[in-house]
Design a protein around this nucleic acid. Structure first.
Lengths: 347, 347
DNA sequence: CTGTTAGCGCCTTCAG
DNA sequence: CTGAAGGCGCTAACAG
């Protein structure tokens, strides 16, 4: 199986390499006849371009725009996807790929819109975005679609949008996993509290799906406990702690926190000295990790944010450079983290 | 930050590109004086070679030898590392890297030795091996060390050997994770059985470490149950089932299987209609997966065998081509798999 | 010991 | 519409 080069198919077609190159890149200026002849030979010989040689010769640059939250407004969470993206960018920079970040404030949809506009204006060839504001993101995706700019979604999906791919967890299923774990240790005593701590106006569709999955699973366990659902506004810890007094008047033995705020609950419970409550939350923030190690939090669910970032960028590389088919859904694993396996996690 | 080329540093040193190339590759035939001058400039300018251009120009080939079990004698388990290795090989073949497999019979140390000898004879530049036979592997590693052939270990470590890196789990810790999970659901009723089903003469240091981790953790739980340890020879299912009657005369509520044979226990227990026993095992074989989905097995621990294969090859690439520093221990995550998250696992 | 030259496979002008 | 030529950055002969 010899390697086939452009010059080989050029000779076989009785034309020059330049002409073959033109049809490969669909740059036109080739007659239908020779075009078809060349295409046929390419197919017969099973030609695949040498990406290394191409990278060396080509001056074409691909600019990737990245629209994600900044680390400051996200308790450092978004530093992980960013790290993974940087790794990917570093691996593929040889192929003429560059990237620039447009970091928005996680709590301000105006910030999202501003950065999105700036990104579009700068002229990008492909983007990966975290569509945390549903309406604003939807209209951005529409725009990108019309401009023929491929778009990868990370962390959150917008189901029927014209995006190339979604990289992230299946939220509903992650809720089910949470329920399964907590139901294992359920002794029949005490009730279950689903506790959502979130900012006003935060996009909560993610959280709602997790909660739904959790409830659906828990409703199938026998001797099922009562399940209470409480949503509280994330303000100061002082206020929060006061608000929490109320739900915990009930005898609660299990708490499900559908986002990264489990540490706040653990803070509260160790404060009021209520021990023996099982807690499960999401995401390996430093504060969550501390409580996990102390035994105040029992399980965390990790979604490999760094991997998600890496895959997000690589998806664009595979689309534009390797020209591979891209899967619409690239689900991340739903990783169960305890105090005993946390030292080996891949963020 | 302009890109620095060989020609740039050649001009600055007042020599030709060829000379610079010679010092970069330590090919000698350069006077100490010019050598030092060039080295100095390389450092000042922070030159890093363009790997793409190098790959295109270089004729040098790197041959990787891969010494792992065949799929046939391993219930298909080793098809996963092989798949990961193929992925890696495909990504780096542009850099003149080729690989050939030397697959041995998992149950015959002679097979291991034969294949090892064949591999050495064929003349490889680097190897990744699964050192499943301790003594035989140790002497192979010694040989490789003397021949200056870098060697990556996957799946099983040989602690004080002269190998470049180990890619796999920390067995002791995976046993602890198993114990933690099972202790969560321990209600205080029934005892614990550690059941090792293995071939005679199988290398068991891996399993012993898992068992040790399991026991160490379980001994810290309060109201700790009795822990029985049974090792049975893996022969026919018929014989196995007879042997198992004995340990299960006790009231067992938890079974820990420190290898991939959990499905055999599940087979047995559903056969004799003993329900309600919690089982934890290792590795996502098809048979284990089926029992997990049916609820006959509660947890599986996954070690990402495909990833391990991928990383094993990439480690050699990073060593020989990228010239990166390599970590001696590259621990795989200890992944907890249940019926609810198994659909998202990365093998 | 050192410089020169001819590619590696592909892309990109620039003539024609 | 097509061919020829030069070059991407580096390597590897071959002179000198």
């Amino acid at each position: 199986m010899e390697k086939i080069r452009i010059i080989d198919i050029a000779r076989k077609a009785g034309v020059s390499a330049g002409t073959v190159d033109r049809v490969i890149h669909e740059r036109g200026e080739v007659s239908e006849d020779t075009r078809n002849k060349i295409l046929k030979i390419i197919n017969e010989l099973g030609y695949t371009p040498d990406l290394v040689a191409r990278a060396l010769a080509s001056k074409k640059k691909i600019k990737i725009g990245i629209l994600i939250p900044d680390k400051e407004t996200s308790s450092s969470y978004w530093s992980y996807p960013e790290k993974g993206m940087n790794t990917a960018i570093n691996e593929i920079k040889h192929f003429g790929i560059t990237a620039s970040y447009y970091l928005f404030n996680l709590h301000q949809k105006e910030s999202f819109e501003d950065k999105a506009a700036a990104m579009l204006k700068s002229g990008v060839d492909a983007v990966v975005i975290a569509p945390l504001f549903k309406n604003e993101a939807s209209s951005l995706i529409d725009n990108l679609h019309h401009l023929n700019i491929p778009c990868v979604l990370v962390d959150t999906d917008i189901p029927d949008s014209a995006s190339l791919s979604y990289v992230g967890q299946n939220s509903y299923k992650s809720g089910r996993v949470a329920a399964q774990l907590l139901s294992y240790s359920y002794t029949g005593k005490g009730d279950v509290l689903i506790l959502t701590i979130a900012r006003a106006h935060e996009n909560m569709s993610h959280l709602q799906q997790r909660v739904q999955g959790f409830k659906d699973y828990f409703n199938t366990v026998k001797n099922k406990p009562a399940i209470y659902e409480v949503t509280v506004n994330e303000t100061s810890d002082l206020e929060l702690f006061e608000v929490l007094d109320n739900p915990f008047k009930k005898e609660i033995s299990i708490v499900f926190v559908p986002n990264s705020r489990a540490f706040k609950v653990a803070d509260y419970l160790s404060n009021v000295n209520k021990l023996g409550v099982k807690i499960l939350g999401f995401d390996i923030l430093e504060q969550n990790k501390e409580h996990l190690m102390k035994g105040n939090i029992d399980f965390l669910i990790n979604q490999r944010p760094e991997d998600q970032g890496y895959i997000g960028i690589m998806t664009l590389y595979n689309k534009l450079v390797v020209k591979k088919e891209i899967e619409r859904y690239q689900y991340s694993p739903i990783e169960i983290i305890t105090s005993e396996n946390i030292e080996f996690v891949v963020k």
